[in-house]
Design a protein around this nucleic acid. Structure first.
Lengths: 125, 125
DNA sequence: TAAGGTACTCACCTTTTGGTAAGTTAGGTG
DNA sequence: CACCTAACTTACCAAAAGGTGAGTACCTTA
């Protein structure tokens, strides 16, 4: 009764059970699990949207953080920025294929948080 | 061609596409997507572990953050703390059922990050 | 009697994160 | 000619996160 089996298994790279400090996946994980990153990715999972629309959806985000978050996600190849040279400016943001791949995993997580948040906070001491 | 269908759908509570600022799920989401929270949950998904073992696995974590993270996860009902009254002290940490439910969703996400991190960072600019 | 082992806590300080408010761009509109 | 609009950028400041090193408990072993 040594090797118990659990439902979900970590990738082989973590076979020793250690999550190395300098591992590139830490950086990426930080981006995609950041407070605002999650919300923006989720919003975009519903389709292409403009800057102002994203601002509205991720309630409470500042312009600074929206800009910063979008830049990070874009440079990670998760979000596509399509700027039209019109005045006033119009910029549409959407997910790349990689972004869709990711939100497919992110949505269940957020859904779980949404469904369980009530009971979790209610039963705190 | 108005209502495009995407692979993953958000819960009905977000039907308007807005993620409210005061929503309880934001708090829970912050806990479970926190830098150290993810790592601890993942480590525990491999089975019960002692304090010192968790410290080793979540490489780079300080004792302060380990204590803080474990307290948060425990009060969220995700982690179980089992202290044995021996000297020197021995404390075992494990996942609750709710914790396992969560890691089942978390593991695929981290696996994705692990598999894609290399290419994401390589193709930056 | 002194040192060792484990799981912490605390005070203090640094670093990072994030908010606020103002400024920028340039053509279209009154 | 002044103002509007949308999508930003910048400087400055406040708040939060996080690291460091010391201290604690207490029984066991040398």
């Amino acid at each position: 009764m040594e090797a118990q089996t659990f439902p979900a298994r970590l990738p082989a790279g973590f076979a020793d059970g250690v999550f190395p400090a300098g591992c590139p996946s830490r950086t990426v994980l930080d981006h995609i699990t950041s407070k605002w990153g999650v919300l923006i990715l989720l919003a975009l999972s519903e389709g292409e949207q403009r800057w102002s629309e994203l601002r509205r959806r991720a309630e409470g985000i500042s312009e600074k953080m929206l800009a910063q978050t979008l830049k990070t996600l874009e440079s990670d190849g998760l979000v596509l920025r399509h700027a039209q040279p019109v005045i006033p400016p119009r910029v549409d943001y959407s997910l790349t294929d990689r972004g869709y791949e990711l939100t497919a995993l992110l949505v269940p997580l957020v859904t779980w948080a949404y469904n369980n948040a009530g009971e979790i906070l209610r039963t705190q001491r």
